[in-house]
Design a protein around this nucleic acid. Structure first.
Lengths: 178, 178
DNA sequence: CAGGTTCGGTTCGTTGATTGAACCGAACTG
DNA sequence: CAGTTCGGTTCAATCAACGAACCGAACCTG
């Protein structure tokens, strides 16, 4: 079964989650949604993903209730995280944190998250997406993300799509991008 | 899903993580490792995964340093999580929690995790894999997992491979299984 | 020691998902 | 009214997953 995607035989919550979120590209799409990307064309340009695949993944996510599709102008749609979708934040953060700490080489860009609305002044998120200053698990909307090292100083080719450019400066999660 | 493997163009920790852990079956293999499954044959029987794919995924994980392969008897190998692999626990837990809360239907089996070694008496893990009693993020080895509802009372076909049977009763994470 | 079983694989033909290019219609822009 | 943007769909080629068959080493079992 090519990740067409069912892990039928597994009676396991993780298998259920992976049937939705375990397809290729899906978690990267969701990460972009957490950043605030909302339009098809922006996702496409930022992720370099084939249109057909993006179209399919968005439909799956809307179907599963993680994203809502809204027609904000005639012929223009946007995709926004639902409450269910927002609940995926600790998983997305934990995976990204794992990648950052164990897989990104010295020349890679390092992105961090701060609890901007923290009553204790805020701090960089710790394991489990917990704010070490106030001890809570902040909602994505109260977080700010920023790059530890300027994009130009990394080894990777500098991307110049609108989303990549906008994300070079600090940004509040979920705030519309670009 | 041929979850193919590189997300070359993405300069992003999440993309790096997904290159290792985002392939089909990989997270389910790791979940089994957290449960304490160590042998090729047990993984194969529990996951119903083609041998070639399991072989490939284990090699990738060993290569990436998340699993260590140990020859515990002539001709017998076991795969154990490394410290790097153990660091993936919050991600695995968060995804499973998401599936449990949003995707598992009423007839599905619900698995929970308790902080068994908690100085405050222990409680069911909360979002972010945090123990609500002591406020820490417990190591997998100090957790116990159990089913909220007996396996026989769920809608799904009852599996009878050794791992599934062993997991019907409460079990300490990482303790060898079956 | 012959025969069977377990373990941890590899090989291979088939099935099916991903890819990238081409095409499309609706709506707005100049 | 010509051109562009947006959000797709269609299609052929490619590449990964599937599952059945095969394999060698080690270990019973009689």
């Amino acid at each position: 079964m090519p990740l067409g995607q069912n892990y039928d035989r597994q009676d396991c919550a993780l298998a259920r989650a992976l049937e939705i979120v375990g397809e290729r590209w899906t978690l990267l799409v969701l990460r972009d949604c957490f950043f605030g990307v909302r339009r098809f064309a922006d996702l496409r340009a930022h992720l370099d993903i084939p249109r057909a695949v993006l179209s399919d993944r968005l439909a799956t996510l809307v179907d599963a209730g993680l994203l809502a599709r809204r027609n904000y102008a005639p012929g223009r749609d946007e995709y926004v995280l639902t409450d269910t979708g927002l609940d995926l934040w600790p998983a997305v953060y934990s995976l990204a944190r794992f990648g950052d700490r164990h897989l990104v080489g010295p020349g890679g860009g390092r992105r961090r998250f701060r609890h901007a609305d923290c009553p204790e002044g805020g701090a960089e998120l710790a394991a489990g997406a917990v704010c070490p200053a106030c001890g809570t698990l902040p909602a994505p909307s109260s977080l700010e993300t920023y790059l530890l090292v300027p994009a130009a100083d990394t080894d990777r080719p500098v991307r110049d799509d609108a989303v990549s450019v906008a994300l070079r400066r600090p940004h509040r999660l979920l705030a519309p991008l670009p």
